[in-house]
Simulated scan of single mutants.
Amino acid sequence: MNLPRLNCLVGLILVLTCLGCQANVAPPTTAGSEAAARQHFQDEFQKWMAGEKNQVSTMESRLKNALAPISYNIRSIVKDSPDPLAFDSAKDLPPDWKDWPAYRVNVGVEFKSKAGTPVEKISTYRVTWNAAEAKWYIAERFE
């Protein structure tokens, strides 16, 4: 094989490899967007299911020292008013907190019952993006 053909073939392989890699990369999410809120919420649920420290474990499960859930299903995400408690307690609440993006998340959480059968409970959360801290806060809602 001559050198120009070999260079062209190598170049073509590199281009195809790069295009293939880009197809598997998730699109970036904008801070404070619904997609970013969903991703953060899912990450926190994965931590809960793995028995790690998280922001989504319910008050009931903590009080009862219950086992971690076995699955979850996000039922809906809609815009919500921001949580006025979504800030680091060492800082003051910024004056623009009412403009922070926030979402209400309704989720079905499946636990293993004492009888060994699955039990589903519906929980509602408020996910608030604190723009000043560039950080998500999640709080269970009681309505």
Score class of each variant (00 low, 15 high):
residue 85 L to D: 13
residue 60 E to A: 15
residue 106 N to A: 14
residue 63 L to Y: 08
residue 136 W to Y: 06
residue 91 K to C: 00
residue 20 G to C: 02
residue 43 D to L: 03
residue 116 G to M: 03
residue 76 S to V: 11
residue 100 W to F: 07
residue 118 P to A: 04
residue 93 L to C: 04
residue 112 K to I: 15
residue 9 L to C: 09
residue 19 L to D: 05
residue 2 N to S: 04
residue 141 R to N: 11
residue 125 Y to T: 05
residue 86 A to T: 03
residue 88 D to Q: 09
residue 27 P to K: 15
residue 52 E to W: 07
residue 69 P to T: 09
residue 35 A to F: 05
residue 120 E to G: 05
residue 132 A to Q: 15
residue 74 I to F: 01
residue 83 D to S: 08
residue 10 V to S: 05
residue 111 F to H: 15
residue 123 S to V: 08
residue 79 K to Y: 11
residue 45 F to D: 04
residue 105 V to M: 08
residue 21 C to S: 14
residue 87 F to P: 07
residue 73 N to K: 11
residue 71 S to H: 07
residue 59 M to Y: 09
residue 132 A to L: 10
residue 69 P to W: 05
residue 30 T to D: 12
residue 27 P to G: 08
residue 108 G to Y: 07
residue 50 A to E: 11
residue 100 W to R: 03
residue 102 A to N: 02
residue 57 S to A: 14
residue 68 A to L: 10
residue 109 V to N: 04
residue 50 A to K: 10
residue 142 F to A: 11
residue 108 G to W: 05
residue 58 T to L: 03
residue 52 E to H: 11
residue 26 A to G: 10
residue 21 C to P: 07
residue 131 A to F: 05
residue 74 I to A: 00
residue 124 T to Y: 09
residue 111 F to M: 10
residue 24 N to V: 15
residue 47 K to P: 04
residue 143 E to D: 15
residue 57 S to D: 13
residue 36 A to N: 05
residue 27 P to H: 09
residue 59 M to I: 11
residue 79 K to N: 15
residue 5 R to S: 10
residue 13 I to V: 11
residue 22 Q to H: 12
residue 45 F to Y: 08
residue 84 P to T: 00
residue 133 E to I: 09
residue 122 I to T: 15
residue 83 D to G: 04
residue 42 Q to T: 13
residue 117 T to Y: 10
residue 132 A to R: 13
residue 137 Y to C: 02
residue 3 L to W: 12
residue 133 E to M: 07
residue 44 E to Y: 02
residue 122 I to V: 13
residue 101 P to W: 03
residue 36 A to M: 01
residue 82 P to M: 00
residue 116 G to I: 02
residue 108 G to I: 03
residue 96 D to Q: 12
residue 66 A to R: 13
residue 47 K to E: 05
residue 53 K to F: 07
residue 44 E to V: 01
residue 115 A to K: 12
residue 2 N to R: 03
residue 34 E to A: 12
residue 126 R to W: 00
residue 27 P to R: 15
residue 81 S to K: 11
residue 22 Q to A: 13
residue 10 V to L: 07
residue 36 A to S: 10
residue 112 K to T: 15
residue 97 W to L: 01
residue 142 F to D: 12
residue 101 P to I: 04
residue 24 N to W: 12
residue 44 E to F: 02
residue 127 V to D: 00
residue 87 F to M: 07
residue 40 H to I: 04
residue 108 G to N: 12
residue 136 W to N: 03
residue 42 Q to K: 08
residue 134 A to G: 10
residue 52 E to D: 13
residue 35 A to M: 08
residue 43 D to I: 02
residue 91 K to G: 03
residue 3 L to P: 08
residue 72 Y to R: 06
residue 94 P to I: 04
residue 17 T to P: 03
residue 15 V to D: 01
residue 73 N to F: 01
residue 34 E to F: 03
residue 111 F to R: 06
residue 21 C to G: 15
residue 65 N to S: 13
residue 132 A to D: 14
residue 6 L to W: 07
residue 140 E to Q: 15
residue 94 P to H: 04
residue 51 G to F: 02
residue 95 P to Y: 02
